[in-house]
C-alpha cells in the first residue's frame, strides 16, 4: 500500500540545557517571539475561534457585545451627564469612547492572566512558542474592540462629530497599546500560571483603576476641584494618548512621555521575567 501521508513536518533543531546562561536564555526567548510571529495565522485563527465559541448558537453573535456596550453607554451617559451637570452633547461622545477603550484595556489585562493556563492542553502536548498565546489574547480582544467601535461611530454620528485628520494621531497610541498588551500577557500569563492567586488581585486592581482613572469622569473635573495630579496613573497616560486625538483635545507632551516610560518599564520587566520563566511555564500550567 502506498503512503497516503505526504505532508512532512517542518524540520527543527533543539538544543536545551539546564544550566543555560542569560545570553542563551535570551536567545531562546527571542526565538520564541520570532517563531510565534511566524505562526500568526494560527494566533489569528485561535483568536477568532475564541470569539465564535463564546457566542456559539446565538443569532447576533459578537454583536451582543455592541448592544450591551451601547445600552451601558446610553444609560450611564444620561445618568452622569445629569449628576455632573454636563450637557449630553458634550458628555456622551466622551463617555462612549472612554467606555469602549477602557473595556478593551480592562478585558485585556484580566484575560492576560489566563493566556497560558487556558491553553494548558496544547502546551503540555506540543512544543509551541508561548508568544502565540499572547497574540491570541490580543487578537481576541482586538476583535471585541472592533465590534464595540460601532457604538462610538453611532454616538459620534448622532452628535454630528465627524472625524478630523488629527484623529490619526490615535494610531501610534494604539500601536503602543498592542506592544504593551503583548508584553503584559507574557508577564501576567506566566506569573498567574505560577501563582494562582494573582488573578483576583489583578481584577480588583482593575476595578479600582476604573474609578481612579478619568473614564466616566473628565480630567478637568478633577482639576476644577483643585486636585491636578493624574501624573502617576499609568492608565491615564495610556488612555489619553488614544482618546485625546479622537476627541480632538490637545495632549500634553508629558502624557506621551509618561505613556512611553510606563511602556518601556512594562516591556523591560516582562522581558526579564519571560527570559527567566519561559522554560518553566510548561511545568506551571
Amino acid at each position: 500500500m502506498s503512503s497516503a501521508v505526504t505532508t512532512i513536518a517542518p524540520p527543527k533543531e533543539l538544543h536545551l540545557r539546564a544550566d543555560m546562561t542569560i545570553a542563551t536564555r535570551n536567545r531562546w526567548a527571542m526565538a520564541d517571539l520570532a517563531d510565534g510571529m511566524h505562526l500568526w495565522r494560527l494566533a489569528w485563527a485561535l483568536g477568532w475561534l475564541d470569539i465564535r465559541l463564546r457566542y456559539r448558537g446565538s443569532m447576533l453573535g459578537p454583536f451582543w457585545l455592541t448592544i450591551s456596550t451601547g445600552v451601558m453607554v446610553a444609560a450611564l451617559g444620561v445618568l452622569y451627564s445629569t449628576l455632573f451637570k454636563i450637557e449630553l452633547k458634550e458628555y456622551l461622545p466622551f463617555l462612549a469612547l472612554s467606555q469602549v477603550l477602557w473595556g478593551f484595556l480592562a478585558a485585556l489585562v484580566s484575560e492576560a492572566c489566563g493566556v497560558f493556563t487556558d491553553a494548558e492542553g496544547v502546551i503540555r502536548s506540543v512544543r509551541m512558542p508561548f508568544f502565540v498565546f499572547s497574540m491570541r489574547g490580543l487578537i481576541r480582544n482586538a476583535i471585541v474592540l472592533g465590534h464595540n467601535i460601532v457604538v462610538i461611530v453611532v454616538v459620534f454620528a448622532i452628535f454630528r462629530m465627524w472625524p478630523h485628520p488629527g484623529s490619526l494621531m490615535a494610531l501610534p497610541g494604539l500601536l503602543l497599546w498592542a506592544i504593551d498588551a503583548l508584553a503584559l500577557t507574557l508577564l501576567l500569563g506566566g506569573f498567574c500560571a505560577r501563582f494562582r492567586d494573582i488573578q483576583p488581585i489583578v481584577n480588583s486592581i482593575m476595578q479600582i483603576a476604573f474609578f481612579m482613572t478619568p473614564v466616566i469622569w473628565k480630567p478637568n473635573q478633577l482639576s476644577a476641584s483643585g486636585i491636578a495630579n493624574l501624573a502617576f496613573n499609568p492608565f491615564y497616560d495610556l488612555l489619553e494618548i488614544v482618546r485625546g486625538p479622537i476627541l480632538g483635545s490637545d495632549i500634553a507632551v508629558t502624557t506621551w512621555i509618561g505613556a512611553c516610560v510606563y511602556s518601556v518599564a512594562l516591556c523591560a520587566i516582562s522581558w526579564a521575567f519571560f527570559v527567566r520563566a519561559r522554560g518553566r511555564i510548561a511545568f506551571w500550567v
Binding site: 533543531e13 536545551l16 539546564a18 502546551i123 510548561a282
Partner: peptide
C-alpha cells in the same frame, strides 16, 4: 515540552 531541569537535550 518540558525543558531539562538538570542535564541537556539535543534533538
Amino acid at each position: 515540552i518540558y525543558e531539562p531541569v538538570l542535564g541537556s537535550l539535543r534533538v
